[in-house]
Write a protein that binds this DNA or RNA. Sequence first.
DNA 1: GTTCTAGAAC
DNA 2: GTTCTAGAAC
Length: 256
Amino acid sequence: MNKSNKAIHPFFLVKKPATTANPVPTPASASLTRIVADSSKRAAPTSSSASKKQKSSDSGDSNYALSPNKQHNQSWQHALKPYVANPEQFGPEVVVDVSREVVVIVDKYPKARLHFLALPRVHECPADIRGLTNLHLPLLGSLQDAFVRIQETRPNMKLRAGFHSVPSMAHLHLHIISEDLISPSLKNKRHYNSFATSFFRPLNQVIAEINEFGRIQIGTEEECEALLKIPLVCYKCQKNMKNIPELKKHLETEQS
DNA sequence: GTTCTAGAAC
DNA sequence: GTTCTAGAAC
Ligand SMILES: Nc1ncnc2c1ncn2[C@@H]1O[C@H](COP(=O)(O)O)[C@@H](O)[C@H]1O
């Protein structure tokens, strides 16, 4: 069927971008069988075919890459803007690191014991990772630097840095999050899977793909969002969890 | 993104 | 009857 894509650890599951004919798993084939703990579904969807969506080539609209239902038109989608516009108006409990290029804040609804967002201050910034190109490599470097600073000042916590494949909030933001995924604000499958499947795109992989291909290798928004609905599996021991309460109880036991 | 809650699932 | 999920929100 498919090559053993067995996840040692879903966080670090690497889908090598195909250079030749690309056997992209389609939602249709994926729905043929529902295999428990099917690791193939945890792989990142990549699309080799041309995008179904047409992007209006060079409008200045940062929504250009987003499908109509994902465009940032609701007021709640702009809640991150004040941090970038006026970082000095927030206390050190909220804004934890500021550089010329990046503001790092504490996530208001943390999905783990530590959860930060690194926000680029430049406004020439794509709405999401689909818009990233070589031009943004310096910015990605600044985000990486911010991540390193945050990690170095919290040596007791293993942190991960990455983007959501399809963001809900406007303004490009890098998640910097501890691996435990233990938090009262983690309340549903979507929350969990957005950090425990390849819906989460590690920063180092994003940088590597842009270096190699000039942009990231990623499936459609629909393919990526399908990852949010797959069965719950513990990121650490791979056990299937029947629901969110069971998962949350289990995650506590994974913490040594 | 969150909150709230109807009704599905147990 | 209680737990849990998932969709509406103007
Ligand atoms: N007002 C806010 N202040 C800070 N963080 C927020 C606020 N509203 C939402 N968030 C976080 O923003 C992140 C947006 O994630 P996403 O768009 O899925 O990449 C989530 O982790 C939210 O918890």
